[in-house]
Write a protein that binds this DNA or RNA. Sequence first.
DNA 1: CGGTCTCTTGACGGAGTTCAAAGCTAGTGG
DNA 2: CCACTAGCTTTGAACTCCGTCAAGAGACCG
Lengths: 190, 190
Amino acid sequence: MTLSNYLKEKAAFTNDELKIISDSFSEVSFEKKSMLLEEGNICRHLFFITSGLVKTYFIDRNGHEVIINFASENWWITDIHSFEENKASRLYIEAMEDTECLVINVQDQYALFDKVPKLERFFRMLLQKHTGALQDRLFEHIAATAEDRYDTFLERYPNLQNRLPQHQIANYIGVSPEFLSRIRKRKVKG
Amino acid sequence: MTLSNYLKEKAAFTNDELKIISDSFSEVSFEKKSMLLEEGNICRHLFFITSGLVKTYFIDRNGHEVIINFASENWWITDIHSFEENKASRLYIEAMEDTECLVINVQDQYALFDKVPKLERFFRMLLQKHTGALQDRLFEHIAATAEDRYDTFLERYPNLQNRLPQHQIANYIGVSPEFLSRIRKRKVKG
DNA sequence: CGGTCTCTTGACGGAGTTCAAAGCTAGTGG
DNA sequence: CCACTAGCTTTGAACTCCGTCAAGAGACCG
């Protein structure tokens, strides 16, 4: 099972622990274009994606979608603020392909932390990495050009480039689809 | 002592726990313009600021300072990635006023987590809040104008507005000092 | 009083947006 | 299997936001 393999790669969990963890999650499927989370709702689940692709976004005050990140195989996704504090979410999470997930709710998560304390620390580390990634994206948006951000996107998600329509990439790097088209044209010319 | 009062306000620690926590921190002072952390070094400390004001920034590839955030009384500050993983930091932390801190190193932090497990969860929650704040700043930079970001700054740090030179605020919201000056002129006119 | 730091103002330029139109591609139903 | 449609990408032109450069005006500090 994928979650166990993933955890084995990432940290030193015993087989007992892996079993306890796996048993705490349930499998859920989402069809392409269906929603894992919608704005205004409380995010009830922490998702581990075993196959497929989702995007997280919010709607800005001009009614435009703003993509925060993508997540595919072996990524965790949730609105952590909503999930942990039971607050209405500002975010949407939408399946961009048919997607298989393992999910856990917040109570079961804390019960699991009590059974496998190592996991709480593991999740704290994950959160740290996520925070680092957010900081890097903020840096890019303050200090780098759109072309730089596009290059960074290509390096960071080499496998996503062909799974995503170009205007979604444009949205993620924070430019209009027209301008990304021009960037690409410029790059081909050299 | 300030840290105990702060923790009492924020979560239900017992007096014993508060004493154990307080005893694990040491006091350090920094003069205005001195550095708490410099790029290339490992961030050895988690800082709790009891008085004063610091800024965290990095130097972008054009040699310009880019301010990530400010921290004053009752704020935690560190480069968490460097601190936890013993990696060279990309960041600078600089005192903008004479500043008093309580500090702990990473080993003592983990020893403290073992003695007061509640604290590890508390820190995870802090990290979540920090992540939320970073996400909000990213949203702003993708979807809001400089004027919107200035308004948000004023709401978020009402007490910092008069303690900071205007060009530092400009840097924080990601515009040139000249342009912030124009924004302010526009706002006065109504 | 002189120097340094800070804020303002003007002129110009560049990065990126918006709008509109046209060409492409892929999926869908008949 | 073809035709149609809907969504995706490209291109051009005008426009906006904001940065850079340069110069001057305060303000603070020794």
